[in-house]
Design a protein around this nucleic acid. Structure first.
Length: 802
RNA sequence: GCGGAUAUGGCGGAACUGGCAGACGCGCUAGAUUUAGGAUCUAGUGGUAAUCCCGUGCAGGUUCGAUUCCUGUUAUCCGCACCA
């Protein structure tokens, strides 16, 4: 048979589509299995070879589970709102909705050409009003529960383009497009109170099966720390509350640092002698992002407040107050007590400004560096804390502060509330009306979806407001509460909104009464297996867990966690081991590979390329090996004769079934394919293959290379369609050979190898080892001190010369 | 800087729970076949003259035995909240 991959692949894709082979049943009684991959952002570049890595992997899982008899839901859709589409639309004067439709069409064709077993009847699109109606509905429920609120937040502002920039659009402090200076500008923004769920987002990680690095990264991102808030008096009369994780070092606090944005500075402006210097510093700090501010800079910067000092509450000493940009207004209280002896950043700052450094925990050498060890240190120079360990001192000082009413224990999280506003066009309108009388009033649920108006001019305005703010007809409305004149919110939601609940919609995508029916949600949720990129671990994954927990709290979903299992794939890099990008010129287009080698080869190659969880460089040479593998199977198809599993093949076939079955569940696709290759090597050596061996091979191959396996199945006239047959089983007893090779070591070095019956016991194995000629040689003139025996593996003689 | 990860032949990678390092594939070498090229088939392929010895980023440690565990270190990659 000539291998015409184009013809074969098209043929089976059409058959699957026509028969609805992969449509998940909604009968909600059998064993359901929900497999999910992150839905793509349909960018103008088309599908990247990275996309099929994740999609093929879970397609393999989905196809295998179907062969095992489960009702599998494996859906796909489009996360289609977003900045690149909007920017492309502005540049080319095409409406974003048109751009989106084109991109989706292209993506869909590309995905179909790869033969994924997606249930296309459940396709969703976040920009479809029938979808975002429910995104808006969820926002309104959050608003009603007080989880959506308005707050002043800093945004990136390009002084030349006069628009708000995404962090990504800021390059080295300047605007990506015009290279003008970018400053921080304060705007009133909609926020979602994810911090209210911080503790539960940490605790419930115990209840889910996520790979460890995902859990670790989420925990660290949420960043729970326990410490204390301590109130310092100042000579100006006001008090400053600081947050510290090291209250035990309070006696070592020799100065205080507040963030440049701290509100007391405004209050004190009359009392400060160097206010102009302070103002200058505030301006320069406003130009830096939080990231730049906490980055280690060779020189710490700051300005001492002249005219006001703080008073250390434990010893009543006056200590100077500084403003410095390494203290962030967004974390803790925006003020710290500085203990240069025991904090690295404080130490650098103290050295720079020549401030006193007091040792209050002994064990290090504060002449050369801050001593930050909490395990071994003992308190000194701290009056009633002297002699205590760090742990003991923390406890005692917090009790002391509590008693005196000047401090209390406090848990803090690094996690910040979610800035939910975008001053953009291509997003879900925030369904809120602002009324002079009633304040912020939700749009009635019966009026949802609040559709994004179709306008011609969707460019950003030059006052930093959303493009929607130019639409006076749309903005002016009446208050749903009192009926007076009112104005609509003009900000739209971030792209994260639509992707925070999309997995729920797949269970019941056409429902116009609710986001999904209770029965549908109960049948499929939680998602049994969710795979996606590590880059989504801290934002999308956390945001969607947060939304799901909220929906659980209001009784919409039955479980508090959306995903039972989360795995993550590595990136596919360019041939030069760098990230694929247009500018590097190392982009591989999946269409070219499908055209030249076929989808089955591409699928096999992407799975064979390496450890699924690690990144791997593309190799246009190696892909040939996967094509050859398919061709060798086609050759075998002409050598089918006989029935059953032949004795000489029995062990290898049972082992192969076992390996492939387990490796798919463990995401070790590369070794599963290697096992299949070894299997055909073994069979090819015999010159033929039996019907039963070949059938088993085709079924095992099917999840990886679905087109060619179906084709060969049909050519051979096997019953029904391959995808309707059952996954093969193996017998553990038949996976073992009758004999096993044992390594003989002397002092850990390999000296000989012997072959013995698999069921040999320790005594007979050691006896056989000692009888071996080469072992005898190595043991000549030695006293055996110890004999180590590992069943089925080795014997090690520990010896000393006589 | 903070957080997460990675490092094994010429290349991608494999190695269960501490037990034969290099499975499988690419590439390469030789041979067969072919008018030639390509394709295919057979044999070989970590270094080394070697069956000894050396060898899993680097430096130590634990162990009868370490790619695997521990300490330190270097390099690279991912994320850092308005890219998705």
């Amino acid at each position: 048979m000539r291998y015409n991959h184009k013809e074969i692949e098209k043929k089976w894709q059409d058959i699957w589509e026509e028969k609805g082979t992969f449509t998940a049943k909604n009968e909600y009684n059998g064993e359901n299995f929900y497999v999910l991959v992150e839905f793509p952002y349909p960018s103008g570049q088309g599908l990247h070879v990275g996309h099929p890595r994740s999609y093929t992997a879970l397609d393999i899982v989905a196809r295998k589970r179907r062969l095992e008899g489960q009702n599998v839901l494996y859906p796909m859709g489009w996360d289609a709102f977003g900045l690149p589409t909007e920017n492309f639309a502005i540049k080319n004067h095409i409406h974003p909705s048109v751009v989106t439709k084109q991109n989706i069409k292209r993506f869909k064709e590309q995905l179909k050409s790869l033969g994924f077993s997606f249930d296309w009847t459940r396709e969703i699109d976040t920009t479809d009003p029938s979808y975002y109606k429910w995104t808006q509905w969820i926002f309104l429920q959050m608003f009603k529960k007080g989880l959506a609120y308005k707050s002043e937040m800093a945004v990136n502002w390009c002084s030349s383009c006069k628009c708000v920039l995404a962090n990504e659009e800021v390059v080295g402090g300047t605007c990506e497009r015009c290279s003008s200076e970018v400053v921080r500008k304060v705007k009133s923004q909609w926020m979602l109170k994810i911090t209210a769920y911080a503790q539960r987002l940490i605790d419930d990680l115990e209840t889910v099966n996520y790979i460890d690095r995902v859990k670790a990264q989420q925990r660290n991102w949420i960043g729970r720390s326990t410490g204390a808030e301590v109130t310092f008096n100042t000579t100006a009369g006001d008090t400053i509350v600081v947050y510290t994780t090291r209250p035990d070092t309070l006696f070592g606090a020799t100065y205080m640092v507040i963030s440049p944005e701290h509100p007391l500075i405004e209050k004190w402006c009359d009392k400060l002698d160097n206010i102009s210097e302070i103002r200058d510093y505030q301006v320069s700090a406003s130009k830096k992002s939080d990231f730049e501010r906490t980055e280690v800079v060779k020189e710490k910067t700051g300005v001492k407040l002249s005219g006001v000092t703080a008073i250390n509450p434990v010893n009543n000493k006056q200590i100077p107050i500084f403003i410095s940009d390494y203290v962030l207004v967004s974390y803790g209280t925006g003020a710290i007590m500085a203990v240069p002896g025991h904090d690295t950043r404080d130490y650098e700052f103290a050295k720079k400004f020549d401030l006193p450094i007091i040792e209050v925990v002994s064990g290090g050498n504060i002449e050369t560096e801050a001593f930050v060890d909490c395990e071994t240190g003992i308190l000194v120079n701290s009056e009633f804390l002297n002699g205590l360990s760090v742990e003991q001192a923390k406890k005692k000082i917090v009790e002391f502060l509590d008693e005196k009413g000047i401090g209390s224990p406090k848990v803090n999280y690094k996690l910040r509330d979610w800035v939910f506003s975008r001053q953009r066009y291509w997003g879900e309108p925030i369904p809120i009306v602002h009324c002079e009388q009633c304040g912020y009033v939700p749009v009635p649920e019966s009026d949802l979806p609040l559709e994004l108006p179709m306008i011609d001019n969707f460019e950003p305005t030059d006052n930093g407001e959303s493009p929607l703010s130019k639409l006076t007809d749309w903005i002016n409305t009446t208050c749903p509460s009192c009926g007076r004149d009112a104005k609509r919110e003009t900000d739209v939601m971030p792209q994260w909104a639509g992707s925070s609940w999309y997995f729920l919609r797949y269970t019941d995508p056409h429902n116009d009464k609710e986001l999904a029916s209770k029965e549908a949600i109960e049948a499929f949720m939680p998602v049994n297996w969710y795979n996606g990129g590590m880059e989504h671990t801290t934002l999308h994954l956390l945001y969607s867990r947060f939304w799901h927990k909220f929906l659980y709290d209001i009784g919409v979903v039955p479980t508090s966690e959306p995903y039972q299992k989360r795995t993550s794939h590595g990136m596919i890099l360019g041939e030069n081991s760098e990230k694929m990008s247009k500018s590097r010129g190392n982009v591989v287009n999946p269409d070219d590979i499908v055209s030249e080698y076929g989808a089955d080869t591409l699928r096999l190659y992407e799975m064979f390329i390496g450890d699924f969880e690690k990144s791997a460089p593309w190799s246009s040479a190696s892909i040939k090996g996967c094509r050859r593998f398919i061709e060798r199977i086609i050759v075998l198809a002409d050598k089918v004769m006989g029935k059953g599993y032949r004795t000489e093949i029995e062990t290898v076939i049972h082992r192969t079934i076992k390996k492939v079955t387990n490796d798919i569940e463990d995401m070790k696709f590369n070794t599963a394919i290697a096992a299949l290759m070894s299997f055909i090597n073994a069979v090819s050596d015999t010159g033929s293959i039996t019907v039963d061996e070949f059938r088993t091979l085709l079924i095992l191959l099917n999840p990886f290379a679905p087109h060619i396996s179906e084709e060969l199945w049909e050519n051979k006239g096997y019953k029904g369609m391959l995808n309707e047959t059952a996954w093969p089983t193996y017998d553990d007893a038949k996976c073992e050979e009758a004999t096993v090779e044992i390594v003989i070591q002397v002092n850990g070095k390999i000296r000989a190898k012997i072959v013995i019956p698999t069921d040999s016991d320790q005594a007979s194995t050691i006896a056989a080892a000692k009888a071996d000629e080469r072992a005898k040689e190595a043991l000549e003139g030695m006293n055996i001190q110890k004999e180590i025996y590992v069943k089925g593996k080795l014997v090690n003689f520990v010896v000393k010369p006589k």
